[in-house]
Amino acid sequence: MGAGHHHQLYLPGASAVHRLPPQCKLLAVFAFAVVVVATPRERFWAFALYALLLAAVAWAARVPPGHVLRRMAIELPFVLFAFLIPVIGMGERTTVLGLSLSVPGLWAAWNILAKATLGVVASILLAATTEPRTILLGAQRLRVPSLLVQIAMFMLRYLDVILDEMRRMRVARESRGFEARDVRQLPAVARSAGALFIRSYERGERVHLAMLSRGYSGRMPMLGEVSASAAQWGVALLLPVSALAVLGLSL
């Protein structure tokens, strides 16, 4: 897991969703996820309405459904697991299409699938409409400890370097006929991880030296203000507040 093509995370655009300050969007997505998780699993139509809310956000942000669907692949391992729960679950059993399934297992599978999927889609929409750097600035505005924000900033910066080195090393490996197929190749993969670290470090170190040379002392200078107006907060919080209303109605 953790896979992904982070260059394609962000879809540039100028929609209302894109233009919202990052801190508003971050908070809205977190609040939405909390509301979704807090919803009892029996309220089917509440989950349907949540999905509609996300669809509305996607439409407003002009994020194509295909993008969301492709990125949802990240969920796959847990989806597979969810489908197994009814088969191996305990408790009362029922027969569906000749398969003996556990009733609590079915409920659990539905619960995990519905909530995880809504959470995943909300995060995908956030990442699709907000540049990674901007998300971090938003986190900084939300008082996430600056050391964490800094580590994340450097992490994003170095990620390009590392992925680049990884790709180069894989090409070099495979052009010499190496293919990672089973456990016996592990030492080769392990050795290349060591080399990968050194190579990325030495590249990253030069970037850091360049920053130190220009007076960097541990704090990213804030270039360009990202403050949010009350109206922007209002628009962003529309999502969790509507979700909360749905939850209230469903109880």
Partner: peptide
């Protein structure tokens, strides 16, 4: 020290990357 945040960022990025480096466990 003054190298910490970048070094930590690199380690974070590296861990992120090696988490993508899936290795075969068994068939």
């Amino acid at each position: 020290d003054d190298r910490t945040a970048p070094m930590a960022g690199l380690v974070a990025a590296f861990i992120f990357a090696v988490q993508m480096l899936n290795f075969p466990v068994a068939a």
